[in-house]
C-alpha cells in the first residue's frame, strides 16, 4: 500500500471512530428503550412496555402537552417577529441599528443560564407568577434571534431590485411583501421556524428557571427523572424526543438544500 492510500485509509477509520463517538451513545440509548429489563444494561429481549408506560403516565403526557403548546406558540410568535425584523434590518438603515443588532446577539452568545436567571428576576420582581406564560415568553425571547439570523442569511442573496420592480409595477409595500419578498425568503422563514421549534422543545436551562409548579416541560421532566436515577422509561421518552428533532432537522436541511 502506498503512502497516500494509507493516509486515506487512516483518515476514513478515524472519521468512522468519531462518528461512532457521536452516534453510539444515542444508539445505545434508543436500543435500551426497547430492552425488556428494568435494571440491567444487558439486552434481555424486545419490548414496547416502556413506551406503554409513557402513554399511561399522566404527568408525562401533561409535560408533553405543555412542550407542544410552548413550542408551537413560541415558534409562531418568534417567526413572525423575527421575519419582520430580518426584513426591516435588511432593508433599512437607521440609527440604533447596531444596538438592536447587539441585543439580538446577546441571547445567542451569553451563557443561557444568565438569560435564564435574568428572566426569572424580571418575572419575580414584576410579580408575574411563573407558569406556562412565563415559559412561552422566555422561549419566544431566545428563539427570535435565531429566526432573525436564518432569515437574514436568506435575504443576503436577495436582489433588492425585485422589490423595486414590484413597486414599479404598481404593488403597494404590503403587496410587495406578500407577493414577492415573502415567497422568496420562505425557505429561510421555514428553516428559521423549524430551528426555533427544536430549540424550544429541547430547552432545559432557561425553562429550568422560568417554569412554575405544574408547568413542567418534557426536558425538565427528563432532567428531574434522571436525577432520580436511570430508568427505561427515560430511554423511551428520550428516544421519542430524538426522533422528533431528527425529523425536523432533516426537513429543514432538505428545504435548505432545495432552496440553493
Amino acid at each position: 500500500m502506498d503512502r497516500r492510500a494509507m493516509g486515506t485509509y487512516v483518515g476514513a477509520v478515524y472519521a468512522a471512530l468519531v462518528y461512532a463517538f457521536l452516534y453510539l451513545p444515542i444508539g445505545v440509548l434508543v436500543a435500551l428503550s426497547f430492552n425488556n429489563s428494568r435494571l440491567n444494561a444487558v439486552w434481555q429481549g424486545f419490548t414496547l412496555d416502556w413506551y406503554r408506560v409513557l402513554w399511561h403516565d399522566r404527568l408525562i403526557l401533561e409535560a408533553a402537552k405543555n412542550t407542544l403548546i410552548i413550542g408551537f406558540t413560541a415558534t409562531i410568535a418568534a417567526t413572525m417577529v423575527g421575519t419582520l425584523a430580518a426584513v426591516g434590518m435588511y432593508r433599512y438603515h437607521f440609527r440604533g441599528k447596531s444596538v438592536l443588532d447587539s441585543m439580538l446577539y446577546i441571547p445567542i452568545v451569553i451563557p443561557e443560564i444568565v438569560l435564564g436567571i435574568a428572566l426569572l428576576a424580571f418575572f419575580a420582581l414584576g410579580k408575574v407568577p411563573l407558569g406556562l406564560w412565563t415559559l412561552i415568553l422566555a422561549h419566544i425571547t431566545f428563539c427570535i434571534p435565531f429566526v432573525v439570523i436564518v432569515v437574514r442569511a436568506r435575504l443576503a442573496g436577495f436582489d433588492q431590485h425585485l422589490e423595486e420592480a414590484a413597486m414599479d409595477l404598481g404593488a403597494s409595500p404590503w403587496q410587495t411583501f406578500v407577493k414577492v419578498t415573502l415567497p422568496l425568503i420562505m425557505p429561510g422563514v421555514v428553516a428559521g421556524a423549524l430551528l426555533a421549534f427544536t430549540l424550544s422543545i429541547d430547552d432545559v436551562i432557561i425553562s429550568f428557571f422560568v417554569a412554575g409548579p405544574g408547568s413542567t416541560t418534557l426536558p425538565l421532566k427528563i432532567y428531574a427523572m434522571v436525577k432520580q436515577g436511570v430508568t427505561p422509561t427515560i430511554n423511551a421518552l428520550s428516544s421519542i424526543l430524538l426522533l422528533v428533532t431528527l425529523l425536523v432537522t432533516v426537513t429543514a436541511e432538505a428545504i435548505r438544500a432545495r432552496a440553493h
Partner: peptide, 15 residues
Amino acid sequence: YERNLNTVFQSYALF
C-alpha cells in the same frame, strides 16, 4: 407604485 411609469432594470429583476 402610484407613478404612471415603468422601469426595466439592469439585472432585469424578474421574479
